[in-house]
């Protein structure tokens, strides 16, 4: 269904039944956002995507958690929004440090003073749950909140799919030497299966257990085998 909306004084016609943030991004508006990913859904934690909508007077909402409505009037760049956005970015810059926060901070002329990378956006935790695994979670409350494995013990539930490291906006969650880590914490440890032909590390043991493939082959060897099959008619 097509809907008419007004953004920063201009009229647009957009597809309905969508999140406001998606719509605004598609229209080319620059709305900073750290905790939203289309595939995961809204979480509402970073509070950067705030916009004003008119509903009995102007109201501040997180655009990632708002559905577009026909006739909606939106302000993405008012002084009020700039003020709040700047405030939130300043908080992030005071307490965390990463490329993306630096970029946001510099656009407001702010200095990055924090040390930790993680902004607790929740994308890693939520993507893990979307994958149906839920191996990692948040621990503690308030300022002590952190991403961790249950009870702080490296978990066997993590398959090593690395969806988390892929969605992380800050690079705080990383995979190093077979270890999934956030800061100094080890969330999960992995052993690799090696390619049957060339011996290269291919897949984590646990992920292999979840897949339906039988042989363990690296991408190169897989291609080579296909080629051999095709060219030489060799059968395996």
């Amino acid at each position: 269904m097509k809907m008419k909306i007004e953004v920063d004084g201009n009229d647009y016609e957009v597809d309905g039944e969508k999140r406001l943030l998606d719509v605004l991004l598609e229209l080319g508006f620059e709305i900073p956002h750290l905790c939203y990913h289309k595939a995961i859904g809204s979480y509402g934690a970073c509070r950067l995507c705030l916009v004003e909508i008119e509903e009995n007077g102007w109201r501040i909402v997180a655009s990632c958690s708002t559905q577009v409505k026909d006739g909606m009037k939106i302000r993405t760049n008012s002084d009020r929004i700039q003020e709040l956005r700047r405030g939130v970015i300043e908080l992030l810059a005071n307490h965390t440090s990463s490329e993306i926060v630096e970029k946001l901070a510099s656009s407001y002329g702010l200095e990055v003073k924090g040390d930790k990378k993680c902004v607790l956006c929740g994308l890693c935790v939520n993507v893990c749950s979307v994958m149906g695994v839920s191996a990692i979670a948040f621990e503690s409350r308030g300022i002590d909140r952190k991403v961790n494995a249950p009870f702080g013990v490296p978990t066997d539930f993590c398959a090593g799919c690395l969806a988390c490291t892929n969605v992380c906006p800050t690079g705080a969650i990383r995979f190093e030497n077979g270890k999934l880590m956030v800061g100094p914490r080890v969330l999960s440890e992995h052993r690799f299966l090696r390619c049957e032909r060339c011996g290269k590390e291919v897949v984590t043991e646990r992920l292999y257990g979840m897949l339906s493939i039988k042989e363990v082959l690296c991408e190169d060897c897989k291609k080579r085998m296909q080629a051999e099959k095709f060219v030489l008619g060799k059968l395996y």
């Binding site: 509402g44 934690a45 970073c46 509070r47 950067l48 405030g87 939130v88 908080l91 992030l92 005071n94 307490h95 902004v119 607790l120 929740g122 948040f138 503690s140 409350r141 308030g142 300022i143 002590d144 909140r145």
Partner: peptide
């Protein structure tokens, strides 16, 4: 008592 989920409240 803040749960720590969102930036403004936590920080």
């Amino acid at each position: 008592e803040s749960c720590g989920k969102c930036v403004p409240c936590r920080l």
